[in-house]
Structure formats: C-alpha cells, structure tokens
Design a protein around this nucleic acid. Structure first.
Lengths: 118, 118
DNA sequence: CGGTATCCTCATTGATACTG
DNA sequence: CAGTATCAATGAGGATACCG
C-alpha cells in the first residue's frame, strides 16, 4: 500500500511539500490524465487520448513517460497481433485520488465554462 | 461567501473542471503563494518573497498580478511614506484551502526531500 | 519597501507527418 | 493501435539591475 516515498527536489533552500507535489503533478495534463485513470483504470493509448480531449499524441506520450518514470502510472504491454497497451495507476498514483478529487470539486463549485462560440 | 463563478476556457471541446482549475492555479508558484497566504493572510511583497523561498521578485510580481486578475488575491495599498502593500486572499482564494491542503498533505505523506548536497 | 525593465535560456506545446 | 520524428512558436522562469 503505497508506502514508498519518492525523493523530490525543491526550488529554494527549504523543502516544501506543495512545491514538491506540484513538481510531480503540476504539468499541464497530469491531473487530467490521472483523473481519467482513476475513473476508468487500465486504458489504451488512444482511449486515453480521447478521454483527455485536446491533448496531442505527442504530449500524451511524453506525459505518460513522465508519470511512469515517477512511479504514478503503470504501463503493461498486452501482446496481441497489433500491440496492445494498458495504462493504469500504481498504488502511489491511486493515492492521489483525494488531491485530484479536490481539484475537480473546486472547479465544479467555483468555475463555469466560458462561452467562446457564437 | 465566494459564490461568484469564474468563466474559464478549456482546451479541447469538452469543459473539464480539472483542466479549468489547473488553468487557474497550475502555474509553478501559485499553489505555494496561496498556501502562504492561507497560513498568514495579509503579507507584504518582500515578506511573501521570503516565505515562498526561491522565487524572484519578477516572477512573484507576475504571479500576483495573475492571481489578482483571476480574483483569487486581493492587493491593498496601505499608504504610508514608503509605499506599503498588503496581499491577502479573496473569498474565492480562501475557498482553495482544501485543495492546497490536500496537495500539502499528499506531499508530506508520500514524498521526502532529496539529498542534493554532500 | 515594492516593485519594473531587460535579456536570455530552457521547457512545453502544437501541428503535422510517419511507422511497425 | 501505439506511438515517434520534426519543427516552429510560445512562454514561463532566472539573473541582474534599477527606480520611486
């Protein structure tokens, strides 16, 4: 149960848990990707890309590499004729559920979609 | 009590509360600044800069402008001989407390400082 | 004290195309 | 399906200096 601890550097001289957390999931698409994986664990690359909506394959690929490297996301190759890959959250990734949920809830309560079309 | 709602655009076609929230507080220093203001409301510019630790005056200034523009931070000029300014959170800014707290708590539980000096 | 003004560099993104 | 390659554009961030 996610009792591994990641070593994370911090700008400045003092270590700050917020800065450290932000360095892990503070990238533009990370919270959304994690949210989608929380909602539906084990998604394929293209499924995920559709779910995230707006992300390019390049950036999704980079983001997943980054999340995997940080131990938040697990990548499993399910060998078939055409390659099949499943992305899912690690225990550590799943432990972010409260964080992502609080982001989502705050947004739902305090924000609203901007009208940008006629 | 913070029942104003901000209109926020979103990448992609679907509006997503997480992406929207991230567009507000997803900049590198925003969560930390908000955290410091939650801890000690009404700080001066230089006080804040020391509290944040590692941020340059330029970036702090830009960040505060951004947060003010978004209605999360309030800037009050307390006129003295030398100019005095107090930064504090708006109601909307204060409403981020659970979000920032969850970031901080997660970091405390799952991360640890990296040793980077001898 | 509370910032701006430069200048510069690196990181991130977007668009597009291509591959096994 | 699951990506990688390339290139161009943007912009966030750092260092430093300066001002009322």
């Amino acid at each position: 149960m996610a009792d591994q601890r990641l070593s994370v550097e911090c700008a400045g001289n003092d270590w700050c848990s917020i800065t450290a957390t932000a360095s892990l999931i503070g990238k533009k698409w990370h919270p959304v990707i994690i949210h989608r994986l929380l909602r539906t664990n084990a998604l394929g690359f293209n499924e995920l890309q559709e779910d995230v909506d707006g992300i390019s394959s390049k950036v999704l690929s980079e983001s997943l590499d980054d999340l995997e490297e940080k131990g938040l996301v697990d990548r499993q190759v399910v060998q078939d004729k055409p390659v099949r890959v499943r992305y899912s959250l690690t225990d550590l990734g799943e432990s972010l559920e409260p964080v992502v949920r609080s982001l989502a809830e705050w947004g739902e309560q305090h924000l609203e979609p901007a009208e940008n079309l006629v």
